[in-house]
């Protein structure tokens, strides 16, 4: 998939300013930047949720996983029905079972309501629902920032597992460079609506070319001693 000269405007405000970015097949592109940098607007444009100018080529059946797993699942629907929503196949039940297995959830979760699940489990359900739409691209918008660190690791492992098992290209958005570095093959840094740096992860993290990237790196909290 390739995004060419994409611009998103809300009234007078330009949220995304002429961004060109390629998501190579089977790779995870990490999108970092602070809030207001335009990364979520870019994601929503790719998903067709906000109007934009410019072109997005080769993005078929884009699905998105949202930040807050407590708001992104219908509280009145059983997990199984939620996951089945996008499934086109005839045998929905076995497909739901397969998808839950893919996100490492036991099959009996299908009969439960979201309120009976933990935050990490809910986020897996949201991922399974997105996979049910047989996506050509998955957009993950800050999917671990409302989770505990102890759960975050497992969700990040799952994201990497999905890339390896399904060869699914992904746009992974986060404000935490350490998280992005762990899952992404390519890192793109956004600042004030513009793409300021993009390249292979080790290169961007190891030899940042832009001042803003360096500021982001310096801000990653780390243990002393």
């Amino acid at each position: 998939m390739i995004i060419k000269n994409l611009t998103v405007r809300f009234g007078d405000f330009t949220a995304v300013d002429d961004v060109t970015l390629e998501v190579p097949d089977g790779q995870v592109v990490g999108l970092v930047g602070e809030s207001g940098s335009g990364k979520s607007s870019l994601a929503r444009a790719v998903c067709g949720l906000v109007p934009y100018t410019g072109s997005i080529e080769g993005a078929r059946r884009v699905q998105m996983v949202f930040q807050d797993p407590y708001a992104s699942l219908n509280p009145r629907m059983r997990v199984g029905d939620t996951v089945a929503e996008g499934i086109r196949a005839r045998d929905r039940d076995s497909e739901v079972k397969r998808l839950l297995e893919l996100v490492r959830l036991p099959a009996e979760v299908a009969g439960r309501y979201p309120r009976e699940l933990s935050g990490g489990q809910r986020q897996r359900v949201a991922i399974a629902r997105a996979l049910g739409g047989d996506p050509g691209l998955l957009v993950a918008d800050e999917i671990t920032s409302s989770l505990d660190v102890s759960v975050q690791g497992a969700v990040l492992n799952l994201v990497r597992g999905l890339r390896d098992e399904l060869g699914l290209p992904m746009v992974f958005i986060s404000h935490n460079l350490a998280v992005v570095r762990y899952v992404a093959d390519v890192v793109a840094v956004m600042h004030q609506g513009r793409l300021v740096e993009a390249g292979p992860t080790e290169q961007v993290v190891g030899e940042p070319a832009h001042d803003y990237t360096r500021a982001l790196l310096a801000a990653v909290p780390r243990l002393r001693g």
């Binding site: 067709g48 884009v62 992104s72 219908n74 949201a126």
Partner: peptide, 26 residues
């Protein structure tokens, strides 16, 4: 405006079904 309605729209769930499954029960 809820995320689960956005998700359903992206999955191609028809408007009528969004209304009956997501909006009305809530």
């Amino acid at each position: 405006g809820a995320d689960y309605v956005s998700a359903a729209r992206m999955l191609g769930v028809p408007r009528r079904r969004i209304l009956s499954r997501h909006v009305l029960p809530n």
